[in-house]
Structure formats: C-alpha cells, structure tokens
Computed example of a mutant assay.
Amino acid sequence: MTTTTDLVSYEDALASYDPVMGLEVHVELGTKTKMFCGCSTELGAEPNSQTCPVCLGLPGALPVVNATGVESAIKIGLALNCEIAEWCRFARKNYFYPDMPKNFQTSQYDEPIAFNGYLDVQLEDGETFRVEIERAHMEEDTGKSTHVGGATGRIHGASHSLLDYNRAGIPLIEIVTKPIEGAGERAPEVAKAYVRELREVIKALGVSEARMEMGQMRCDVNLSLRPHGTEKFGTRSETKNVNSLRSVERAARFEIQRHAAVLGGGGTIVQETRHFHEDTGSTTSGRVKEEAEDYRYFPEPDLVPVAPSREWVEEIRAGLPELPLVRRNRLVAEWGISATDMQAILNAGALDLIVATIDAGADAASARKWWMGELARSANESGTALD
C-alpha cells in the first residue's frame, strides 16, 4: 500500500516530470428502460426485481436496442463537437465478474457512435483549456456487488457477497479523452474542471441527472509521467470510479506524487487499476490492467448495426439547448461581471438559483447579492448545499 510517506512533494514531482492524463467518464442515461430490454431503470426497487431473460443473459434471449439511448448518445456526441458515425455496431467485451450476468458486456469497440471531438473548459482564473475527445460510445452497466461482513465494504475480509442485477443493462455512455498533455502543474485542476464542465453539459442536455454521489456519473483517472524533454508516454495507472469533483482532483494529484516517488527511487510503475480512498485522499492497488486484446472483442451477432440518418442527426443538432459555456459567457456580458465573479458563482452552486430569481422578477445585481451573500454564508456555516 502506498502511504503519504512514499510520496515526493508535488513541486518536486513537477520539477522532473510532465503529467499526461486520460479521463474516462461513464454516464448513466436517464432512460425509462434498459439499453437492450424493457426492464425498468427506476432506482430503489427490491434487489433483482427489475430483471428479465435478456439482462440476465439467459440462453435464447435476444436484445433490442433502446432508441432513446441512441438519441442520447448522439446528443452527447454533438454537444462535444464530435463526428457522428454513419454506421457503427456493438461488440462483446468478454470478462468474468460475478456482477456481469452474461460474462460479457455489450459495448462498442472500434466503431463508436461519436468520435474526434473536444470540450473547452474554464479553469479557476478564467483561462480556457481545450480537452480533446477520442470517442463517446454506447454500452451497458453491470450489476452491483455488496460485500458483507468486512470492515471496509470491499471483498477482502468479507464473509459473503450479495448480487443485485437491477442495474445490469442500464444504458451507459463512456466518454474517453485523448491524452491530455501540456497542463503541467495544473493537471489536477484541468481534470476537475473537465469533469465539472462535462457534468454541466450532460445535465443541460437532459439525458441524465449526472449525480456523481449516486453513481450516475463516475470517472476513471488515467495518469502517467514522463521526464521533461522526452516524448514517450510513461506507464499509466487507472484510478477507477472516482465519484466527486474534489476526488478527481485529489486522485490526479496523489498519483503524480506517487509515480514521481516510484520513478525517482529507481522503481517501475505497474500498469494497474487503483482504488481511491476519500478519507485519506490516497490510492491503493487494485488489479493488473488488461489490454484490449485480453477482452477478446468481437462484433455482437444478435444486434444489427446502428446507422443514424444524416437528417435525424441534423434534427437532433437543431434541437440542442444552449450549452453551459455559451450560456455563462452570455450571462457574464448581460450581468456586467467578470469571469472571476462567474467562477465564484459556479463554485457556490448558485448560477441556476440566481437565474431563477431573476426570472421571478428580481434584478440581476440584487439576485447575485442575495444568493452570494447571506444565503451562501449561512449554507457554508451549516454545511448545507445552497439549493
């Protein structure tokens, strides 16, 4: 286990190495039914009560694609400035976990529905950083394992495990960045800002509530270091299922310090998945990371290809809402405030509240003062969300 004593200082790490990141974000879509069957996606139901032969992978059961899931994927792709495939298909990603009832995940491999995009994100000082998007593809979620009898909630030390397949088959969109280079010491801040902006985009599109604390949006943080002046990427680690903006930033920062300590001590980074611990801000080893060939991908034989017409894609594009960055820039101009003021409003979670107050009849200056003054102070003191 890596502890804080195994780290070098953040400043020393950045003095010797350039961080390179890759962020993989999974978003649960807010469809009424699952991706390949008619089972409900409603939360809170009795375990294993929202299942059928399709999502349980029983012999002879045939999947059917959820059209709303495809439409949501196209919306996300367009909002991320991606190209939308004229023809794509699903694949089987083979791996064996107790919470994967079919022993494969229906996903997309070499033919994603959306690819080659970007998302501009604003940092704390108002600077804009462009994150290039490799792909956004459709897939399904797994079931949920609950490990009972241990102290940590993990399988180690547990006496037994319970499996709930209600979540198995819920539509997911996985959004994968290209390698994020050039962020330097601001890499953890860029990671946090990207996930925050992506969450705002997803919410604006209305395709998911994107509540990270409920697992509706989660981020895998891939990170590697390379010595200054070199081009070759280092070996990466992948911190899995990070579920808050603060934790995304902390996980990236910790891994920078841990990688630098290992490399500086003459060691070798192991390509592996890692778990993030909220209480300490540290990560611990999970399992050796598979490569694509380990999953033995092959085209899904039970599903026809997806070929969205150009007319449908343009119809969806025309119906997109005003996206968050465009909206914020418009409000900055309308309200006559600075980018720093807007960042403070965002950090406080007050933007939608201020807009709603203005819509109810208040002037902009009074609405901002009301929410960012007494109410923000009271919320902060009581530890309550501003809304």
Rank of each mutant, 00 (worst) to 15 (best):
T2P: 13
T3R: 10
D6S: 13
L14V: 07
A15T: 03
A15C: 06
A15S: 10
S16F: 06
M21N: 01
G22Y: 11
G22T: 09
G22D: 06
V27E: 03
K32P: 03
K34P: 06
M35K: 01
C37Y: 13
G38T: 13
T41K: 05
A45I: 03
A45P: 03
E46W: 12
N48M: 06
S49H: 10
P53Y: 08
P53C: 10
V54F: 14
C55L: 08
L56P: 01
L58T: 02
L62Y: 05
P63L: 07
N66R: 08
T68P: 00
E71I: 00
A73I: 02
G77T: 01
L80V: 05
C82M: 11
I84H: 07
A85C: 04
E86D: 12
R89W: 03
F90R: 01
A91G: 04
A91L: 01
A91C: 04
Y95L: 01
F104P: 00
Y109P: 00
Y109I: 00
E111P: 00
G117K: 07
G117R: 08
L119R: 03
Q122L: 15
L123T: 10
L123E: 11
L123D: 12
E124Q: 15
E124D: 15
D125R: 07
R130E: 14
R135T: 15
H137N: 14
E140P: 03
E140S: 06
T142M: 14
G143H: 12
G143Y: 12
S145R: 09
V148T: 10
G153Y: 12
R154P: 00
A158T: 11
L162F: 14
L163D: 09
Y165Q: 08
R167W: 11
G169N: 05
G169P: 01
K178Y: 03
P179E: 08
V195C: 07
R196T: 11
E197K: 05
L198D: 09
R199V: 09
E200H: 08
E200R: 11
I202K: 04
L205Q: 05
V207E: 04
G215V: 06
G215C: 09
R218D: 07
D220S: 06
L223T: 14
L225Q: 13
P227T: 14
K232G: 03
F233D: 10
S237K: 02
T239D: 11
K240G: 12
V242M: 11
S247P: 04
V248Y: 11
V248C: 15
R258H: 14
G264P: 04
V270P: 00
E272K: 01
E272L: 03
E272I: 02
F276A: 02
F276P: 00
D279Q: 01
T280S: 15
T283P: 01
G286K: 09
E293S: 00
D294R: 00
F298R: 00
E300D: 07
P301C: 04
P305I: 06
A307C: 01
A307N: 00
S309M: 01
E315Y: 08
I316D: 10
E322T: 08
P324I: 04
P324Y: 06
N329Q: 15
R330C: 14
E334I: 13
G336T: 12
A339L: 11
I345V: 15
A350E: 05
A350H: 04
L351Y: 12
L351I: 08
L353C: 13
I354G: 13
G361D: 14
A362F: 13
D363C: 05
A365V: 10
M372N: 15
E374I: 13
E374S: 12
E381D: 13
S382K: 12
G383F: 14
